[in-house]
Design a protein around this nucleic acid. Structure first.
Lengths: 154, 154
DNA sequence: TATTGTTATACTCTATAACTATA
DNA sequence: TATAGTTATAGAGTATAACAATA
């Protein structure tokens, strides 16, 4: 057993705490930058919009979005309602299966995505400020390994 | 410029997304482990309890807890209400300044903390499973640098 | 009968604003 | 007047359960 384990607060005892704090700061920073651009999307709406944008092939179904967001289908309805109300996306019935609804980006949505991206980048820059370029790269790689790792695909 | 930067999704464009997903997974894992121990604390209640436990000197005031949690004072009232209702914590008026309320841990609260710690550790173990021991250490160090860095003390 | 998305409902977390009781 | 905590209210995010339409 080589583990010295010195600090009482060290190790993973903190993981949840640190993740919560970082996530909240990131959201606050994004909100601040979005306000400067005079647009208002909530973090969950931003995530959904981005997923729609990066989706390959035919536009995603509600169920696809639920899976990508890692939320229950009901949660997607609320988000799409709001995004459809402000004109960022469009619900398109699938002729091949009349139960499914596909979510398409509108031109308005595409414009919003550009603003969202710039706010996201500015916020990330703030959050990552304490790290050097090499540290950021390492951090990003580890984060990706965690997110895409076991448990990442349900 | 040696950076190949191949993937369109690489870099920090993802930071918020990854943090949100990791945080949610961590919370779900903690909830699962807590249920096995037949106790139910919400993530925010757990955080508060832990802060009270690790507080140095006299027990923290509500305002101290708000600062540590990085939330507005109003949010602390709700959390302390719930923790006081289940007997984990006690509101103690400060005789030196009758406006301030200090929050003390009860024996029940100390028992709960032990269960919370074990659930937290088990959850962290799950989340960090994709990483080697060395990677976990690096990740923890970078996370700490970010959380304790600029902006970390308001 | 199984699947897709919805309506109805509820809970957690947190914010802003106004108020109370101190100091 | 300034400070500490509260009551009142609201909105974001998400869950469970029951249901309608369709397959």
């Amino acid at each position: 057993m080589p583990s010295p384990s010195p600090a009482p607060f060290a190790g993973s005892g903190n993981l949840a705490e640190q993740l919560v704090r970082l996530t909240r700061r990131m959201h606050r920073a994004q909100k601040r930058h979005l306000e400067q651009l005079d647009i208002a999307f909530t973090p969950a709406q931003s995530r959904l919009l981005r997923i729609v944008d990066h989706y390959h092939g035919t536009p995603p179904r509600m169920a696809d979005l639920a899976e990508r967001l890692e939320v229950v289908p009901r949660a997607v309805t609320t988000l799409v309602d709001a995004l459809e109300a402000n004109g960022s996306v469009r619900r398109v019935p699938d002729p091949a299966n009349r139960r499914v609804v596909r979510i398409e980006l509108t031109d308005t949505g595409r414009r919003a995505l550009r603003a969202l991206r710039s706010a996201r980048r500015a916020a990330a820059e703030e959050i990552l400020a304490p790290l050097t370029a090499e540290q950021r790269e390492v951090f990003g790689d580890l984060l990706s390994a965690l997110v895409d790792g076991p448990g990442g695909h349900h």
